[in-house]
Write a protein that binds this DNA or RNA. Structure first.
Ligand SMILES: [Mn+2]
Ligand SMILES: [Mn+2]
Ligand SMILES: [Mn+2]
Ligand SMILES: [Mn+2]
Lengths: 221, 221
DNA sequence: ATACTTATTTAGTTTTATCTAAAAAATGTC
DNA sequence: GACATTTTTTAGATAAAACTAAATAAGTAT
């Protein structure tokens, strides 16, 4: 398998993501909107990726990753999340700053560098946003008993273990309200009319919009 | 000043290097051989760089960096050398392995990352090959009383402070013979017929070819 | 089944960065 | 100063990655 361009790596990552969100072959328009590009550009690229056996693509039917393609996706995701961890753990960046920078660092090729970085960070299992970091073989931890905060039962204590949105605006919003990975939350009440949730955290009550509570992942203790 | 492509950054670095080696405007062929590309490609690129006011270029007369261009070169060199230092100091790479990887890392854009890395490494003044690391403003240490080992007077003790060739083959050769930055060397004898040098280091005598001794920088104590 | 709408592909351009081959300018030699 | 050699530029092509506009296929509704 030869070298992938940055653009190819980005497409592969997007297909990997959409594949598990949509749970069916990834359409050209899905990819176009995810990649913030035009459908015609996507068609060009999927032909190339298919040529390289990274995806199975059939005209008008969308595409899905091959084994090779999935391996490539996991390699890039591994690098992305290791770099994010490095930036937060070693260089004291905030979790809202690192995604952008990691979008560039994830394309550095050296496998030895990736593995040394992994070791330097003590083989972290999760990145600063709670997402699992694949190991050298692409294996990663799958968590059990997880819910979105919006679905958590009332009065059941749970721990915040992840965020489903890595945008700086959302993460800064969480910072402002003292929500970070590892804290314990309990739903006190839920309001019918706007689907907002009253949660208890750090002894304080806080009202979270449906928008926010649907993007916070928790695990029941 | 807008964003530079990786290719543009690489050309600017090459021009910076050649400018001080040649000490006159950099010719198209000089650049072509340094960049391992064709003269016609260079002509295209220097037109673009000139358009962006990074260099002064006149047809048939070669080019030289503007203030802006020199600033860009120093920014890239700073990143390159900081990353090399990181790889050696923190990830235990050998000095012969890091140049290649840094060739990629030097193109990561975040200024904040560069400065945080600098801080994380404790503001190093030199990289693993003894080359000075420019600070945020492009300023760097200039050393005095330095010679190439091939020019060092007999029986004058000196310290190895740099290498003029970053190739893995040369650096591995130095490793093999116990030559590293910081060690003390003394020239015992010099042979007319092949210009080789007999040096004393770590109590042992060693014969170095003209090739090798011309690539080792030393400073008289 | 026909017609409308949406999704996708095709065709034709653009930009960057490269190449080869040929032309033109600069330089060196007698 | 004319001729030969070297250096550099121009012209024309190619490949990757984008775009716009137009054509075609698929899906949906009546
Ligand atoms: Mn990220
Ligand atoms: Mn992440
Ligand atoms: Mn280097
Ligand atoms: Mn170096």
């Amino acid at each position: 398998m030869d070298y992938l361009t940055q653009s190819e790596e980005n497409y592969i990552k997007a297909i990997y993501y959409l594949q598990k969100v949509l749970d069916k072959p990834v359409g050209t328009n899905d990819l176009a909107s995810r990649m913030d590009t035009k459908a015609s550009s996507v068609t060009d690229m999927v032909k190339r990726l298919s040529e390289k056996s990274l995806i199975i693509y059939e005209k008008y039917k969308g595409c899905e990753l091959t084994e090779t393609g999935e391996g490539a996706a996991l390699k890039t995701i591994r690098k992305h999340r290791l770099w994010e961890t490095f930036l937060v753990e070693k260089l004291n960046f905030g979790w809202e700053e690192v995604h952008e920078i990691a979008e560039q660092l994830e394309h550095i090729q050296s496998v030895k560098l990736t593995n040394r970085l992994d070791e330097f960070l003590d083989f972290p299992k999760f990145d600063p946003h709670g997402d699992p970091i694949p190991d050298q073989n692409g294996a990663f931890v799958l968590r059990e008993e997880t819910y979105k905060l919006i679905d958590l039962e009332v009065d059941v204590p749970a721990i915040v273990i992840g965020v489903a949105d890595n945008s700086a605006s959302f993460l800064k919003y969480l910072d402002k309200h003292g929500i970070q990975l590892g804290i314990t939350v309990k739903v006190k009440d839920r309001f019918e009319f706007d689907h907002s949730t009253e949660v208890l955290l750090n002894g304080k009550e806080l009202n979270l919009s449906a928008e926010a509570s649907s993007k916070i992942t928790v695990q029941v203790k």
